[in-house]
Amino acid sequence: MEPAGPSVPEPSLYTVKALFILDSDGQRLLAKYYDGTFPSPREQAAFERKVFSKTRGVGGDVACLQGLTVVRASSADLLFYVVGSCQENELLLAAVLGCLVEALGRVLRKEVEKRWLLENMDGAFLVVDEIVDRGVILESDPQQVVQRLSLRAAPEPAAYGFVLLDYLAGSSAPREAAGAAGCRE
């Protein structure tokens, strides 16, 4: 009979426990929690404050906190976090984080900042939903995320936002134009 060693948890597709974006003051701008680790909004906010205080000014981009692996990135006045279990691969979590930051940057076509995020929260949530669904990583290639959303830059350079064509509104303009052209014949 073999001695019982430490049990290794079974691999799971449910890799991401949480994903959130905080401003430079530690205030939540966007958050998605995918399991019951932090069931109440109060517990989530307390965890976010703790993560912010522990990672602010720290040189590394990976931290272990409360038995969880937390990866972090920053862009202008925002801090991006992806949280997984303690046995989760940091590189996998970092790939999700990198995809999030880069996909949002590609949508904007410049560095992501708080003002833009607040003005385009619906688009930001769509980007998050294309990357992670219920804790399962769907995509880690930012180009694929942007392509799936069919995002196109707004025509006026002064606008911070973007237009979600063919995704939110179904964009009937091209079909109407094609129909009108067909009626002329």
Rank of each mutant, 00 (worst) to 15 (best):
D77Y: 14
E156M: 03
I131H: 02
Q87K: 10
F47N: 02
E90Q: 11
S7Q: 10
A181R: 05
E48N: 08
G59L: 15
V132C: 03
A154H: 14
A159T: 08
P142R: 06
I131L: 06
L79T: 02
Y33R: 05
V70T: 06
I131P: 02
T69F: 08
A94K: 15
S172Y: 00
P174E: 09
L97S: 05
L93K: 13
P6F: 12
S150C: 15
T37K: 15
T69W: 08
C99R: 12
P9R: 08
I21Y: 03
P11I: 00
R49C: 05
L68H: 15
S171I: 04
G170T: 08
P142V: 01
E119N: 10
R148M: 10
V145P: 03
A76S: 12
N89K: 06
E156P: 00
D141L: 08
F80Y: 13
Y33T: 09
C86I: 07
D77F: 11
L149Q: 09
E2N: 12
R184F: 07
K54M: 09
Q66I: 00
V132R: 01
S74E: 13
V128N: 07
V71Y: 13
G161Q: 03
F162M: 12
E113R: 14
V127N: 05
L164Q: 12
V128P: 13
